[in-house]
Design a binder for these strands. Structure first.
Length: 582
RNA sequence: CGGGGCGUAGCGCAGCCUGGUUAGCGCACCUGCCUUGGGAGCAGGGGGUCGGAGGUUCGAAUCCUCUCGCCCCGACCA
């Protein structure tokens, strides 16, 4: 392709709305064009890269037996009501009526539709397992799109769904997807970190997120340097040792203390002369409308995600003043002491050997020397606390957990029967012996544009992007510097020679050397071939590798072998990541 | 949804506080000459409902009211 015909319109200046490097560079390189908040057009360069990512995804999924399909984005609301998601999902799901007044939604994923297909066609154990996937538009009315392509409202998602005769088969199948994911990201030029994840509203029995370690990521995950445990902070568990030894040796009886106007933990610490971890922090939530009190040790915070999961709640929110006063409770002085008729959840940090300071369930009053078990009843203790940087790893007890930011590149779920259950879409098959059995599902997603942006986050420098050869819009850019006939004809010759086997961009513009070189750097084309007057004297050309900065000067006839060497060196290593066919 | 910032040419900005010719600058774009190893030079040129609506005024980019949009932080987020 000739540069002058390629619809490339680079920007010299940084668009004001962009702050993240991938956002800035994709805009400056004219890969994308904003339409509205969280909506982008993919321009020719961005489109080419997205298509290359899609091809890699297809190759890897086809290699493990995946079958590509296409499902409609427009879905009848009825289907989504059947699985309950119509009611469980908030404003993120776009709903509307058609001209005949029938309710529709714009699909944000396709579990409903694919399960409907499964119900129609999967009859016998002979039909299982099967994996169907598509690369299709997803629409989500995100509360806050951000960072260019990292979080948008409409995007291409590769969504795959597998169907199995039982959980064992799903467990056997899952590593194939897992490995294919590692291969896909690796082939796109980035290392992904698989972490244990919360499955959220999707439900199910197990889930992994594939993260790219990145400052600009919006997710947080922990990593244990000792045992390698990795998990989303929404799920990760740390040990909860005390900063001071327990104090049951002198089990003072509980006593009430007036604490007029003292509200913050800091003030209370001073008032009672004790440390944060000797307070009992009680927080009120409404879980699907029911008032719930959650108690953690004072140095922890309640994790809403963990709490919601334990409660199997769809909607969890801080309790309103009204909900509290209906039960005669007062925010700021909540306590499990003397409470009844309200559901309580205790964190594992609420230990039996600590004399706590706790609220008194009346204004301006606290108790001191509150002993769990003696002064209030403790049921099961669950992990509902947010993990903190430096907490000891609960998996090995040896490592201090590190918290990292990451970009979620992909997510895999063992769904189980969430969509095939009788109360959902009720999908069964004939198992060949005892009759009907329930289909077990898994689902697996990758955001295409997000992956593109993530690769740019990982691969760029001051001058611009540094695309991995596998997903670069063009493999090679040929830049003739100057208009001498000899320079032009050499560049043309090289272009025609390479263009039959590679994606080549010929910078045929009447631009200064500086402009051409700067643009080549900005666009991040992996290999640049410069033809210049300086080099013409010896009949040579310059080959430069964008990612490494490596420069080779070679004659035109050696170009082929030099390029072969370079391309070989740019291939990602897939060592240890074999296909896992059936 | 809460907090903050910003809307003037394709991009980046000045002008606004203190209202007053034809709204200005750099980049980009077009024409010609010239130049070709790091966003050159000279000359000429096109491009604006100053986000929108209403108001104040003889007169509004500028003052007032409302409104829409975009970005950032947080909440939220199959």
């Amino acid at each position: 392709m000739r540069y002058s015909q390629a619809f490339i319109h680079t920007l010299f200046e940084v668009p004001k709305e962009a702050e993240t490097s991938s956002h800035i560079l994709l805009l400056r390189g004219s890969f994308i064009s904003p339409l509205a908040a969280g909506l982008y057009s993919l321009l020719p360069l961005g489109h080419r890269t997205a298509e290359k990512i899609k091809s890699i995804i297809r190759e890897e999924l086809d290699a493990i037996g995946g079958l590509e399909i296409t499902m409609p984005v427009l879905n009848p609301a009825e289907l989504w009501k059947k699985t309950g998601r119509y009611f469980d999902i908030g404003d993120e799901l776009i709903r509307f009526k058609d001209r005949r007044d029938r309710e529709f939604v714009l699909a944000m994923t396709h579990e409903e539709v694919v399960t409907d297909i499964a119900k129609q066609f999967l009859r016998s154990y002979r039909d299982l397992p099967v994996m169907l996937y598509q690369i299709q538009t997803k629409i989500r009315d995100e509360a806050r799109p951000r960072a260019g392509l990292l979080r948008v409202r409409e995007f291409f998602m590769k969504d795959a769904y597998s169907f199995h005769r039982d959980f064992e088969d799903l467990d056997t199948y899952y590593p194939r997807i897992f490995n294919a994911y590692l291969r896909i990201f690796k082939r796109c030029g980035v290392n992904s970190v698989p972490i244990e994840a919360d499955s959220g509203i999707m439900g199910g029995t197990g889930s992994h997120e594939f993260m790219l370690d990145s400052e600009n990521g919006e997710d947080r995950f922990v990593i244990c340097p000792a045992c390698g445990y990795k998990a989303n902070t929404e799920k990760a568990e740390g040990l909860k040792p005390l900063t001071q030894p327990p104090d049951v040796a002198t089990p003072h009886p509980m006593e009430k203390a007036a604490t007029p106007g003292i509200k913050t933990i800091a003030d209370l610490m001073q008032f009672f002369g004790t440390t944060e971890d000797h307070f009992l922090k009680t927080v009120a939530y409404e879980a699907d409308g029911e008032l719930v009190l959650a108690a953690v040790r004072g140095d922890f915070n309640v994790s809403p995600t963990k709490l919601a999961n334990h409660l199997k709640a769809i909607h969890l929110d801080f309790a309103s003043e009204e909900a509290l006063s209906k039960k005669g409770l007062h925010a700021g002085f909540l306590s499990p002491v003397g409470i009844s008729g309200v559901r309580m959840v205790f964190d594992t940090s609420v230990a039996d050997d600590i004399l706590f300071v706790a609220g008194a369930n009346e204004p301006d009053m606290h108790y001191r020397s509150v002993l769990p078990g003696r002064d209030f009843k403790v049921g099961d203790r669950l992990d509902i606390a947010e993990v903190r940087e430096g907490d000891m790893c609960a998996a090995c007890g040896k490592g201090a957990l590190e918290i990292r930011r990451g970009i979620e590149l992909g997510h895999t779920f063992k769904l189980g029967t969430k969509y095939t259950a009788p109360e959902s879409m009720d999908v069964t098959y004939l198992d060949g012996s005892s009759g009907q059995a329930r289909v077990i599902m898994g689902c697996y997603g990758i955001g295409v544009e997000r992956l593109m942006a993530a690769v740019v986050e990982r691969w760029h420098d001051q001058s611009g992007m540094q695309f991995p050869i596998s997903i670069a819009p063009y493999h090679v850019i040929v830049s003739p510097l100057g208009k001498d006939p000899e320079i032009v004809s050499t560049a043309e010759r090289i272009y025609l020679l390479l263009n039959s086997s590679l994606d080549v961009l010929l910078d045929d513009r009447d631009e200064s050397a500086g402009v051409k070189l700067k643009d080549a750097d900005l666009l991040g084309i992996p290999v640049r071939i410069v033809v210049s007057r300086k080099l013409m004297k010896t009949g040579e050309v310059e080959v430069k590798v964008r990612q490494t900065g490596e420069v080779r000067i070679c004659s035109e006839k050696d170009l082929d072998s030099v390029l072969n060497e370079i391309f070989e060196s740019l291939k990602p290593s897939l060592e240890g990541l074999p296909y896992m066919p059936e």
